[in-house]
Write a protein that binds this DNA or RNA. Sequence first.
DNA 1: CCATTTTATCGTAATATTGCAATATTACAT
DNA 2: ATGTAATATTGCAATATTACGATAAAATGG
Lengths: 113, 113
Amino acid sequence: MGISKTELFSDQHNEIAALAKAIGHPARVAILELLSEIEGCVCGDLVDEIGLAQPTISQHLAVLKQAGLIRGAIKGANRCYCIDPIRWEQWQGLMMDFLAQCKTIEHPCKADY
Amino acid sequence: MGISKTELFSDQHNEIAALAKAIGHPARVAILELLSEIEGCVCGDLVDEIGLAQPTISQHLAVLKQAGLIRGAIKGANRCYCIDPIRWEQWQGLMMDFLAQCKTIEHPCKADY
DNA sequence: CCATTTTATCGTAATATTGCAATATTACAT
DNA sequence: ATGTAATATTGCAATATTACGATAAAATGG
């Protein structure tokens, strides 16, 4: 039904999934990378850098903002977006733990592929 | 239009996004964690552990398989799924690089939030 | 072969996502 | 106030996702 049964899962699993979902689009990956590279935040440069229409970029920014990965502030005539360092670190910790956890256990799986 | 313009982005961005998208559902996070914990791979135990119907679990497994994160083999009456260690390590590297990259640069953003 | 068990696939309904044109909003300058 | 530049919002169309019941397929045990 297009709706996830989040109540079945732990907070941690839901959080990892929500944040992964926010990164789960190449435009948003590109936006995050640009936000980290360009000095002094970014506004509409993203529209020029990425080849998508302005409303589409704005929408992707809203997704990232809702996920808490970025923050926006009004700065003159244009908005100013930055990666939220606190939230980013939190996400980084969650994800790295998860990545490590799913790797550490040795698999006794001897099935032939 | 519900379809991503992947041609606008680099292979690396598309790959990060594709793999993040695969992890972007709590059921799949839970499945990956279970696959890493349970000895000797897993099959239909996932249906019991997670509260979703069997076809739904099977569908999530297909998503993870398509993303290359897990592999499946027939083992007797039931299938046997494992995390693909090579692909997992590759994904882990990509993701950790991305996480680190977006964090390292100091932001001169002085906007007040 | 037939029944059983296990998993995959099909079909379908509900909802979400992606993308853009058109339009509204916001902040600043004049 | 009026105009301009930059973003956000709205509305919409196309497609994707999520979930499950029903059914098919595959392997084993009898």
